[in-house]
Design a protein around this nucleic acid. Sequence first.
DNA 1: CAAATAAACTTGACAGTGTCAAGATGGTGT
DNA 2: ACACCATCTTGACACTGTCAAGTTTATTTG
Lengths: 205, 205
Amino acid sequence: MSIKTKKNSHHHGHLREAIIEAALKLINEGGLGALSLRKCAALAGVSHAAPAHHFGGLAGILTALVTIGFERLNQSMAADLEHANPNSYAQLLAICEGYLTFAETNEALFELMFTSSVPDFSDPALQKASGTAFEILAKGCLPFADNPDHLQTLQIRIWSLVHGFADLSRGHRARPGYHPIRTTTFADVFSNVIPNIVMLPPENK
Amino acid sequence: MSIKTKKNSHHHGHLREAIIEAALKLINEGGLGALSLRKCAALAGVSHAAPAHHFGGLAGILTALVTIGFERLNQSMAADLEHANPNSYAQLLAICEGYLTFAETNEALFELMFTSSVPDFSDPALQKASGTAFEILAKGCLPFADNPDHLQTLQIRIWSLVHGFADLSRGHRARPGYHPIRTTTFADVFSNVIPNIVMLPPENK
DNA sequence: CAAATAAACTTGACAGTGTCAAGATGGTGT
DNA sequence: ACACCATCTTGACACTGTCAAGTTTATTTG
């Protein structure tokens, strides 16, 4: 069951993967606060200073975790898109549902991705992964935009909507016994009442 | 310049306020990571263990900070609402602008309010403050809803939209040289293109 | 094949963190 | 004058990330 492959050796072999695995286990079981370099090292069966050699420090591990997070987010969106009806509305909604599924399933990772300022967001691998996420969303928005400017505005609107919904669904910030977000489906939020606002006459400026 | 009022005394007098003041200064200048009990104590001119006596521990201070954050958020929304044109659309938009202004002006506080799981969100004062925030938003949505169900959906839609926009505007998660969110005004996101989505024919289910 | 070099990891130390127990101090009420 | 008690201090503890120096193993080089 041990992650270590070569025993009695100063060379672990797959230490980088083992440490990431340990880090994921820690944050899944105890949240972001349960993550520490030394616990990762202990779980991987190495000395307390070993992780720094591969990741440069705590920030390096967090950067790697965030990158994995975006890759999983992309997989989740792509998976829901795969099973969606072939109309543009259902497909964009499916992408959003994939986003929400990821946020619910990987709470600590989601918090780390969109919250912490410690990871290095200029890291190439991270930029590629997060860029892919943006592209998936952009592609889903494409059928609804009639020009590039509107496309960008639309992307940001949809991204803001689904991200805000996901973020507000976390934690226990609502009043006791009154959790409106938990009891509201995103499909409703996504459609329905919006025309009531948008269709208003401009009135006076 | 010292916050302390009574010198050479074991009784500080306004230690609670002094510690909060120190904590706000720390997170404003150095972000959430710069906050520590001991630095707060040092700034307030007391021993390292003094804060725990008033707040029970670090979580207590964070809870107090989050409460202050919601109070400031409420003030910001109310202020923008005050100066808005007296039509419902402009007023709801103004509330959102107040939300965004707060998020930009109090970055660390915003992060703490909607991110951390350490503060105690069941604290009565905190619940009152966050409840008020929800009510302000609800009141702004009221003119646009034709029944209670739609009102709740609408509230959550608007809250998700503005919160997501605020949260994504933080940090540097976009690609280098490509920060779509920074260059997109919320007013555009708020209105405009949405009918393109909503007005779509249902197609096949 | 042997020696030099580089990489992987260990060991030990350091300053910083939150928390707790025990003690000192000073105001308050009896 | 006395007791009480909240307030704050002091000292200790385990834990954290980081760094420098040493040890071991693999790889490359002559």
